[in-house]
């Protein structure tokens, strides 16, 4: 039988203003053999290239890259939505992209990713909302929670821009509200194979 934390199969993260710093703290904490895939929507300027994922890839043990259309999801990978495209996860666990209208003035939109991820992963999903100055993500995180997944929000007091985590706190009865510095270690401990051994 699967233990409670072993049921999870995907982590989705939504982040806006202040994201480079926040992700730069969290993602390097993940070990090389981290068993879950992570998918990130970071709001950014439409003409931004893949700088952020390249930058983080140099600093992380897991592979960090921009998601390609139809690419299959793999563990120990962190996928970023490309600038100016929505990123969605299909039920067969491949990515797809779209240039549909912006949602909450954003493309990529966090809600678009989160809602499609719920269709693909149901209750086996962990959703995280970090710093940002936008309401995007709150309704997606609520859906994750309603569907039996885990909802984590960065403690707004530790966010360089607190509006987005605050909106999420108002909308969702989160499982964890964590200071920025604790989120990386929390993910590592909760989901890494080592800690799984320890809980058995």
């Amino acid at each position: 039988m699967k233990t409670r934390t072993e049921k999870y199969e995907m982590i989705v993260i939504g982040v806006s203003a202040g994201g480079t710093e926040a992700l730069g703290k969290i993602l390097p904490e993940l070990p090389e053999n981290f068993p879950l895939p992570v998918t990130v929507v970071q709001h950014m300027h439409p003409s931004q290239d893949a700088f952020l994922s390249r930058y983080l890839n140099e600093r992380c043990a897991v592979t960090v890259k921009e998601a390609s259309d139809k690419e299959p999801v793999q563990p120990a990978h962190v996928y970023f939505a490309p600038a100016n495209y929505h990123l969605l996860i299909e039920e067969n666990r491949t990515f797809s992209l779209s240039v549909d209208e912006k949602v909450h003035f954003s493309r990529p939109s966090i809600d678009v990713l989160f809602e499609s991820a719920v269709d693909a992963y149901g209750s086996c999903l962990v959703g995280i909302i970090l710093t940002g100055a936008n309401r995007d993500g709150a309704s997606g995180l609520k859906l994750i929670k309603q569907s039996g997944g885990m909802a984590i929000i960065q403690d707004p007091a530790t966010a360089s821009s607190c509006y987005m985590p605050k909106s999420a706190v108002d909308a969702v009865d989160a499982d964890y509200i964590l200071p920025l510095d604790d989120i990386g270690p929390f993910l590592r401990e909760k989901f890494s194979p080592v800690s799984r051994q320890a809980t058995r």
């Binding site: 929505h86 969605l88 996860i89 299909e90 779209s98 549909d100 809602e115 499609s116 269709d119």
Partner: peptide
């Protein structure tokens, strides 16, 4: 068509 987008629509 890719299902996730068409479903959204």
């Amino acid at each position: 068509y890719a299902r996730a987008s068409i479903k959204r629509r």
